[in-house]
Write a protein that binds this DNA or RNA. Structure first.
Ligand SMILES: [Mn+2]
Ligand SMILES: [Mn+2]
Ligand SMILES: [Mn+2]
Ligand SMILES: [Mn+2]
Lengths: 216, 216
DNA sequence: ACTTCTTATTAGGTATACCTAATTCTTTGT
DNA sequence: ACAAAGAATTAGGTATACCTAATAAGAAGT
């Protein structure tokens, strides 16, 4: 009864991620994120519901406790893979997503342990997201999007909710990476850009982009 | 035309390995090695032949040049994975096979390069088998099975052609690992055991086992 | 030469996971 | 209240890679 294929893992992981933004996840959003057709997703969601990994209501899909546990295991492997890639193999943060997305399905519980141990039990992935521990416990910090800061507010970047390599490269080029301190100099009105100050330089950042950056 | 699935990789890798022992590989041998039914293998071999990755004659299956090239790429990834597991993640040589067999299909050319670089371009896997380089060039040393040595002959272990964890554990417990020097003290007649001397200790080794150990 | 054993293939079928086209169900604007 | 738009599902189909049972082909033994 406990047969998990890579595909199931992939769906659970996507649902998990999308739930952070929008609680019951719509099948269309899920299809978009997985780059699959809506009917394919519809069908698969039905199977996941049969396996009691998700609840499927009118409002959308949500993970059951069991589904959540399984999703977090995949997320753990994904984020540990990312750290392995950056910390040991010298990858940049914009190069790791796709690679980790394949690795996460090929990693045994033993390998998971060994990676964690070799890396000194890292708490976050290179993008600042928490790595769930063996028991699925994960500490989320209270954060808000950079886009919501007021003028003259100062904060520290916690994570970046983005996986597009181009965007990540861009952010890294501005020094907008986790643990960096940012000062919002000015907020243009009517949804205009933010002028931010990062390690001595000043940049204009679109709201859309700024909303992906979570700070504390 | 160049779509390689994990399954195709798996078949090519198995054929490659089995070719070292028996040149045209029989489908039954292949089925046994892959732990699949004979008809499944029969069918898949037909597909591989269609894709010009193997030639299938009465005598059996052999890799074409293209199949061989592809197989060596998989073997490279497999052996690099094994080295990653032992050298960086602290695995023992008997624990790496199955793990590497999954990883090899999840590793991009970029990751392959990075692993090789991070490990200092290792020449062999933990079992002593050569790692093909990027261009598929692989240096095979001239070796013979330990089982063919005469009494009083001394040699150095090059590799161990075995993937069963139990057997590998046993061999490691006797110190029978690559680069170790072995002296054959005595060869019992009628296919009997060899008495070998390894780093100061003396052991009796069955012929079957000894034939898996290649020395120079 | 013929029977037996082994090896390989054909036949027929299953599960998984995807697709497009058509349909139904749900909002939402007027 | 209802038509149009949008979201989701159903219907029908494909590709891949397995399986068992039955059959055919090849090798070996008497
Ligand atoms: Mn994935
Ligand atoms: Mn990440
Ligand atoms: Mn494999
Ligand atoms: Mn090896």
């Amino acid at each position: 009864m406990e047969a998990d294929t890579p595909r199931i893992e992939e769906y659970l992981e996507s649902i998990y991620k999308l739930q952070q933004e929008q609680h019951p996840v719509s099948t269309s959003r899920l299809a978009e994120h997985l780059k699959l057709s809506a009917p394919s997703v519809s069908e698969m969601v039905k199977k996941l519901a049969n396996k009691r990994l998700v609840n499927h209501t009118e409002k959308g899909v949500c993970l059951t406790d069991e589904g959540n546990t399984m999703a977090k295991r995949v997320v753990r492997r994904h984020r540990l893979s990312e750290r392995l890639l950056t910390d040991i193999l010298g990858y940049k943060w914009d190069e790791v997503h796709d690679e980790a997305c394949r690795l996460e399905h090929a990693i045994s519980p033993q390998m998971e342990d060994r990676i964690a141990l070799s890396l000194g039990n890292p708490k976050t992935c290179p993008h600042g997201h928490p790595i769930p521990d063996k028991d699925g416990v994960l500490l989320k910090e209270k954060v808000r999007p950079l886009s919501e800061l007021k003028s003259k507010e100062k904060a520290i970047i916690v994570n970046v909710f983005e996986e597009d390599p181009k965007m990540l490269q861009y952010l890294a080029s501005l020094g907008l990476i986790p643990d960096v301190s940012v000062l919002v100099e000015e907020v243009a009105p009517f949804g205009g850009p933010l002028i931010v100050c990062v390690s001595g330089s000043r940049y204009a950042l679109g709201r859309e982009v700024a909303s992906k950056i979570k700070v504390k």
